[in-house]
Design a protein around this nucleic acid. Structure first.
Length: 695
RNA sequence: UGGGGCGUCGUCUAAGGGUAGGACAUCAGACUUUGACUCUGAGUAUCGUGGUUCGAAUCCACGCGCCCCAGCCA
């Protein structure tokens, strides 16, 4: 391995504290999630930071649920969080705690502050409190209830606790300084009245502590030494310190670090929840989600996630980590641990014309060239095979060294084969290759020492298993999702405009027979393609594999560079699912489509989209068709698409229809789509300029 | 225009008065029964302006830029 990395700033603080014996040599950290959602990579960084800080110092690490708000918290989230933290290797042993278990102690301390004259019951409504708070540049004003007597405050607080007052009617506030430049110090709320059932406490409480009041107390009770949180809590530290100092109780040190941000990813709970609720993804565990559950299902090993978190460092700089760093960490781990298998994702049939009819040979292949101990396996070889369609080109460019007419390649672990002829269908598409093999190249080395440049993977047609392969790509196609669309009129959630339409491609693959009985979660490298794992949905006879991450592909990069360099506007080669020219959706059943050739199809770009009044299926779109002025088109796709998800999107438009009025709006054209209702999908013309003819 | 924080290669991140180093990305090459892995090489950075000093990314001053804060959320 390389040099041991230097300590990051929090490790340095910990080391200094150990040296000065500040905490009697103890190190005790915690991860304090609120159980109101699923954990994501950002949390992983925090879990790894806190747990490894404890581990490398022989200290302790707690998992504590910060469950102080019964409105949004649920047992479901508690369970998933515990499971995810364990999976990540956050070892909290038996130290699983709940802030709600400390409610009685917290309340006692609150009475203490009241008795000291440091807290008061305030009758201001939320709105009045906001008015009194002042602004960023103007000081606040004291609450008219600020000077109530200790006795009155105590009485009121007890009656708040007893449930005598309506939710929202009173709060307990710390008496600090309404003129502070730090707004958090302007008499923050300690308790609010909420008559909600708590997921653990039931109806035992009707006042609930706020974060600022509760958090330091929780840390204090657990004798935490270093209370690590993200940068946005920096402004809260004076409050954290104030409460603990007023109470004179054990006082941990709060330290802030910059949270993780990733390119091509959104990480806010709100946005992730939206993606799930609005079905842009299949759920919290959709393998494209940056949630721990999503990454687990995708096949990311926890070791890789931890290595990534250690690798990116810990600072106070507000930075964005390139997603490829995560992907590299995953490849790195899988390269040494994942057994190799052969699978053909886009099969092209090959007949070996000189192979003895009916003969089957068992070929020995290495399971993992990076790991001798992984051993060998046998793979059946026969006269009819499937190869990857991309591994053949009828007219290859110079640097292509795979199969093409007259050329020889090695079939991994088997023989050299040479392409003798190409079989095509009526449309000219290649349907089959006729090849010969050289019996003297068994195992993949030629007796005469001749070399071949290309080695490709294969499966035997009669032995191959059918499998569904889910090819995942990044969920967003923009480095900073939504950033380019910020502030556009009518766009509530700009990140939706950057959703990557190719983030999931489902393919029918042919895989080698050894994969028949693998269990969900098992990870492999499909040679030359990428790392895959068996999905939860997989069953014997109906195998499903998820592509965890593709292998790096220098050839694809070269091809892409070639395409984009000389030609003006190369269409993106996004792997699209084949789409039938389905009947166009929309409110136009009476239009004749008997003769499809008369229909003019052009690519268009949606400029604006809005709902049509009194029509829940219709959207009014303004579409740029490269004609100067955009066209107004009314389309019956509102069940499947929100207006904001359409803006900026490329669509196929039938342009030579007679204009017709819908709900009083003249519609000049029709959007091409397939399916119906909620599962409607739009035909994508690719990345071409508006006005381009679509064939 | 209040308070708090942060500015080093394209992106992360070291260097804490003494040669600006590493990783990822990029490009070029070697190796290769995975166009993977591995290896070699290349280029690119201290926000600005002054000051202190033999010497400044580092200390000081003044600017500039970015982030966070006006929930009875966390």
């Amino acid at each position: 391995m390389s040099e041991p990395r230097s300590l990051h700033f929090i490790e340095e603080i910990v080391e200094a504290d150990k040296a000065s014996n500040k905490w009697q040599g103890r190190v005790h950290t915690r991860f304090p999630p609120e159980p109101n959602g699923y954990l994501h990579v950002g949390h992983a960084k925090s879990i790894v930071l806190n747990s490894s800080l404890a581990r490398r110092s022989g200290g302790k690490f707690n998992l504590r649920f910060d469950d102080t708000n019964p409105e949004k918290e649920e047992q479901e989230y508690v369970d998933s969080i515990i499971d995810d933290v364990k999976w990540l290797g956050g070892d909290f042993e038996d130290r699983l705690f709940y802030a709600s278990d400390y409610f009685a102690q917290m309340y006692e301390w609150a009475e203490q502050l009241v008795k000291k004259g440091k807290a008061y019951v305030c009758d201001l409504s939320a709105e009045q409190m906001r008015e009194h708070r002042g602004t960023l540049t103007e000081p606040g004003r004291n609450s008219p209830f600020r000077d109530r007597s200790v006795d009155e405050n105590l009485d009121l607080l007890r009656r708040m606790k007893a449930g005598e007052f309506a939710p929202g009617s009173k709060t307990l506030r710390a008496k600090i300084d309404m003129t502070s430049g730090n707004i958090n110090l302007r008499d923050p709320v300690m308790y609010r009245i909420m008559k909600e059932r708590h997921h653990r406490q039931g109806d035992a409480w009707c006042i609930y502590p706020s974060y600022d009041w509760a958090h330091g107390l929780e840390d204090s009770i657990e004798r935490i030494t270093h209370s690590i949180c993200t940068l946005e809590f920096e402004n809260h530290r004076p409050l954290y310190d104030w409460f603990l100092d007023q109470l004179g109780i054990y006082h941990p040190q709060q330290i802030e670090f910059a949270k993780l941000q990733l390119t091509y990813t959104v990480l806010s709970k709100r946005n992730l929840l939206f993606l799930v609720k609005e079905k842009y993804v299949s759920g919290w565990d959709d393998p494209r989600m940056p949630t721990i559950r999503g990454m687990r299902r995708r096949g990311y090993p926890s070791e890789a996630l931890r290595a990534f978190c250690e690798d990116i460092g810990v600072t106070k700089n507000d930075t964005v980590i390139d997603l490829v760093r995560l992907e590299n960490a995953v490849r790195d781990h899988l390269n040494t641990t994942a057994p190799r298998r052969m699978a053909v994702v886009n099969p092209l049939k090959v007949v070996i014309t000189n192979w003895p009819a009916g003969q089957v040979e068992q070929v020995e292949v290495q399971n993992n060239p990076e790991d001798e101990k992984a051993g060998m396996r046998t793979v059946p070889f026969s006269g009819e095979l499937y190869l990857e369609r991309d591994d053949f080109m009828e007219e290859p460019p110079k640097k292509f060294f795979r199969l093409s007419p007259g050329r020889e390649v090695r079939l991994r672990g088997a023989y050299f084969i040479k392409c003798e002829s190409v079989v095509k269908d009526a449309t000219g598409a290649v349907t089959e290759l006729r090849c010969t093999y050289d019996p003297s190249t068994k195992g993949g080395t030629a007796a005469d020492g001749r070399k071949v440049k290309g080695t490709i993977h294969w499966v035997s047609a009669q032995h191959a298993l059918d499998a569904e392969v889910r090819l995942f790509d990044r969920l967003f196609s923009a480095e900073f999702p939504g950033q380019a669309h910020e502030g556009k009129p009518g766009v509530d959630r700009p990140f939706l405009l950057d959703l990557n339409p190719g983030s999931l491609v489902v393919a029918k693959a042919k895989v080698e027979p050894s994969l028949a009985t693998e269990r969900p979660g098992a990870r492999f490298q499909f040679e030359r393609l990428g790392y895959f794992c068996v999905d939860l949905d997989s069953k014997a006879g109906a195998l499903v594999f998820n592509r965890t991450v593709a292998l790096k592909d220098a050839w694809a990069k070269e091809v892409a560079a070639e395409e984009s360099a000389p030609k003006p506007a190369a269409p993106a080669k996004a792997p699209e699912k084949k789409k039938e020219p389905a009947p166009p959706a929309g409110p136009a059943p009476e239009i004749e489509f008997a003769d499809f050739t008369k229909v003019a199809l052009k690519a268009g770009r949606v400029l604006t989209a809005e709902k049509v009044e009194k029509a829940d299926k219709l959207l009014k779109l303004s579409v740029d068709l490269g004609e100067g002025a955009p066209r107004t088109i009314v389309s019956g796709i509102a069940e499947a698409f929100s207006p904001e998800s359409l803006v900026g999107r490329n669509v196929v438009v039938v342009t030579n229809l007679k204009p017709r009025a819908l709900k009083g709006i003249e519609s000049r054209g029709m959007i091409l789509a397939s399916g119906s209702g909620k599962s409607l999908s739009l035909i994508n013309p690719g990345d071409v300029p508006p006005g381009t003819d679509v064939k």
